[in-house]
Amino acid sequence: MRSLSYVRARTVREATQAFATAGEGARYIAGGTTLYDLMKLGVEHPAHLIDIASLDGADRIDTGGDVLFFGAGALMADVAEDDVVRHDYPILAESLSKAASQQLRNMATVGGNILQRTRCPYFRNGAIGAYPCNKREPGSGCAAIGGLDRSQAVLGISDTCTAVSPGDWPVALTAMDATIEIQGPAGPRSVPIAEFYRLPGGTPHLEFSIEGGEIVTGISVPKTEAGKNSTYLKVRDRESYAFALASAAVALAMDGDRVRRAHIALGGVATRPWRAHEAETLLNGQTIDREIALAAGRSAFADASAGEHNAFKIELGARTLADAIMTAGRKTQ
């Protein structure tokens, strides 16, 4: 890690100005659980850190208005424990409380978490491995393709990158049609979460639709009755403190015993938080049973493509989604 400067900004304006002044090598840091980790691994090399964790009002959680609003600086632990979120939107609360550990959730912010970078071991092993990785070093190749690909994605992959989008919270937000609030030198803008995450395509190093100097300031989630009938199911290699092999975020808006509108997104299996439109369409208008749930699960993976060791994710992902649909379905009764 190279020597660097550190300043703490109090306002968004102060932060963006500091960013502009610092010039090349400037990076915002919030909780630091991703950035500082990658700095220690020699993957990220900022020269200037602008701390935006304590911007005035950035940790605001407002569930009283028309939308749920989460200031980007709100801690993952605090949003997970918020009463309204817990009772009316378990999909959101569970996606947060099943991520990382309580220590990290006390550090990481909900804004920073949506910018978390992949856990692909070829990407993270910058120092010892110096493995080819198009994300870390564009044009160097992808060592994961044809390699130990058990944890790699089966949806949204390209021939340059199969790295999994690692988050849980972004998956729940994707299911719930969240909007990302961004401020930059050119002023504020809002980006629907569906447009926030990029597919790797030929440019896997470009992961988020956010420009240098811009700051994520908040996340809004439309209120919906589907929130109550929701869950986030995460299947991993151990019972806790691990990234998802497959996860499913499901929320169901009902008309009597029939699904009016299903909200479904998948994690652990795709290169970005994955909206499962096919599964949603299949469920809409239906009553929930195991058979339809599994059919929905399978439909979500119709276009999946596996490598040597990760084919199981296609079946596991389908069953995980089916289980989540059943859990959400039980909440409607």
């Binding site: 659980t33 220590q103 990290l104």
Partner: peptide, 24 residues
């Protein structure tokens, strides 16, 4: 931040001190 051996409290909350920039 993968083992918890460095856990301390900041303002009464537990954190991983290894992933906390000291300046913070």
């Amino acid at each position: 931040g993968q083992c918890g051996a460095c856990t301390v409290h900041i303002d009464g909350r537990r954190v991983a001190s290894c992933l906390t920039v000291a300046a913070k």
